Simulated assay, not measured.
Amino acid sequence: MSEDITGKLSANGAVGAADMKNRAAAIAMTLRKRLLAAAMLSVLLITTACATSDDEGSKKLNTPKALEVGRFASPNLGSVNTYWISGPDGLVLVDGLRTIPDAENALAQIRENETPVVSIVLTHAHPDHVGGLGVFHEAYPNAPMYAADTTIHTMATDAMGFYELARSLDGHVYPDHITVPENAIADGAPVKVAGLTLETKRFGPGETDSSTVFYHAPSGSLFTGDLINNKMTPALLEGHTCGWLADLNLLATAFPDAATIYPGHGKPGKAKTLIAEQRTYLVFVRKEIRAAIADSSPGGSEVTAE
Rank of each mutant, 00 (worst) to 15 (best):
A156P: 03
I120N: 06
S79K: 00
E288L: 11
G269D: 05
E112V: 05
M29R: 08
H177G: 00
E56V: 14
G57L: 02
A49M: 05
G7H: 09
V69G: 12
F223A: 02
D158K: 01
S42L: 14
A66V: 01
L248I: 05
P298F: 12
G239Q: 14
P64I: 13
V92E: 06
I275R: 01
D55L: 10
L227W: 11
L198V: 04
R286Y: 00
T30R: 12
A108C: 00
L196C: 04
V173R: 09
L169F: 14
F162T: 13
A156K: 15
A292L: 15
T260S: 05
V283S: 11
N229C: 15
D176P: 02
G300E: 06
A125N: 01
K272P: 00
V80A: 14
L198R: 07
A18P: 01
V130G: 00
D149Y: 01
S2D: 10
L41A: 14
I27E: 12
R202Q: 11
A143I: 14
P116Q: 10
A184T: 04
P175Y: 10
H265F: 03
G188Y: 05
G264D: 15
Y174W: 09
V15W: 07
T241M: 13
G134Q: 11
N12L: 15
M232R: 03
A73N: 01
T48F: 14
V130S: 01
G300S: 04
A252G: 06
Y146E: 12
S79V: 06
N249C: 07
I185L: 00
L36P: 00
W244M: 06
G206N: 06
D170G: 01
E68I: 03
R71E: 13
D19H: 07
A159F: 03
E238A: 04
T47A: 14
D55V: 11
L251S: 10
G264H: 14
D19R: 06
F162Q: 12
L107M: 07
P181E: 13
R71F: 10
H137Y: 05
T99L: 09
D158N: 12
L31E: 15
D102R: 07
E182V: 01
H124K: 07
G131Q: 06
T48R: 15
N12S: 13
G70P: 02
F203Y: 15
A106G: 02
P175V: 11
L31T: 14
A125E: 04
Y215L: 02
T99S: 14
H177K: 08
Q109Y: 04
R23I: 03
L250V: 01
A292P: 05
N183H: 15
H177R: 11
A17D: 08
N142L: 08
V92Y: 04
E199W: 13
D209K: 00
C242P: 03
T123A: 09
D226W: 03
A73I: 09
M40K: 12
V213R: 05
N183S: 11
G132L: 07
V43I: 02
